[in-house]
Amino acid sequence: MTTRKLSHSPRPIASEGDNPNLIVDISLIIPVAAILDGRHIRRLPKEVVAPLMRYSPRIPASDWAAIRVFVLDAVGAASEGTTLDTNRALKIAAHFVQWAVNLQGLPQEPGAVFNRRVIDNYCESLTLEEGSRASYRSVLVALADRVAPADNPEPMQPIRRRTIKDPYTAEEANGFRSWANGQRTVERTRKAKLLLAGAAGAGLWPGELGELFPEDVTASESGVTVAIRGRCPREVAVRAEWEEMFLEAVSGCEPGKPMWGPERTTREPKNLVSDFTSRSDGTAPKASRLRGTWLVQLLDERVHISVVFKASGFKQFNNLHNYLPYLTLPSVQDARSQLRGGERS
């Protein structure tokens, strides 16, 4: 780590009678990066340190051994005098530093790793929803502010959580059928089909896919419907072009058990999909963009807005304006006819 040096000697200590506001040593107000060599983690209470020391992330053991002290001490330094959730911070920081040091080749120096450019680049690389990425970034920023304040003098721009990622076109969404069918195992293929048909065909949120049971699906001559549980209970009809794939995903599932299957690599339902796609074969689609495709198709087909609102599970449709650029615009004559309330002749 580079040590900051002054170009002049510190001013002498003020004597009695001198200006009490006199700065004794200008170096005292220059924020410097923490030395992350294990000294900070040792200052924490034993009951806090014990679970941190036992933590082992899901990365190669040799990679973790190379960065372990650096990561633990960063969390320790950021925890001093704060209410930081150390367990959560450690889990996030471990994977961040693994990416920055072992994969990107950055030196184990607080200012090199914990700065806004690196944090932003890392968060952009995550296959998570906007809210999750914003949450991860807030934790990393809290660490950066404590261990490398001089390298983060300005506040970071917040992630605009109401922006959307570009929806796939209908052709792009259909192109992922080969991805779903090309997984190496039967179970992965079934999950890929459930993700693709559930998000592009019924607009399911990632977390809702993990809460589906076989008995929630009804197939009849009038189509396939899904009863969705969770925070936004509703019933949605699957789009006709995705019905067959959706039923293929349901086929063979045991009643009373989640369709996503017994394999759960994360406790957070919303992370089930991103965890699966990160380990899948080939280039996986993003669930949020598939859901966007579904929404654009409904709006383009002029499905009644109240139907769209209910089927999408929205309580507030604050992002509606963000989808407008992706809709097919009517001709000038059609627009005039629609505004007049009549049909084009």
Rank of each mutant, 00 (worst) to 15 (best):
T169P: 01
E171S: 04
A200T: 09
N174D: 11
A192F: 01
K191E: 08
E171R: 06
A202R: 08
D166H: 13
P206Y: 07
G203K: 12
E211C: 14
P214C: 09
L195M: 13
L194I: 05
G198S: 05
A199K: 07
D166C: 07
E172A: 04
E208G: 00
Y168V: 03
G207E: 13
F176L: 10
G203W: 06
W205S: 04
P167M: 15
G201W: 12
G207C: 04
T185C: 02
E208F: 05
Y168F: 08
A192I: 01
F176S: 08
R188K: 09
L196I: 03
N174R: 15
W179M: 03
E187K: 07
L209Q: 10
A173H: 04
L204Y: 08
K191I: 13
G207D: 02
F176N: 10
A192H: 04
G210T: 15
Q183C: 02
P206S: 00
K193T: 02
G203R: 12
G201P: 11
P167W: 14
E187Q: 11
W179K: 02
G210P: 09
T189R: 15
L195W: 09
R177E: 14
W179N: 05
F213Y: 15
G203H: 09
E171T: 08
N181Y: 12
G203I: 04
A199V: 07
G203V: 03
R190W: 03
A173M: 00
G175P: 06
E208Y: 02
E172T: 07
T185K: 00
T169C: 07
G175T: 09
A200G: 10
A197I: 09
G201M: 15
S178D: 12
L209V: 10
W205C: 03
T189M: 13
W205I: 05
F213C: 06
A197S: 14
E208M: 01
P167S: 15
G210D: 15
V186Q: 13
L194Y: 01
R190M: 02
E187W: 10
A199L: 05
K191L: 14
K191H: 07
P206A: 01
E172V: 03
E187T: 12
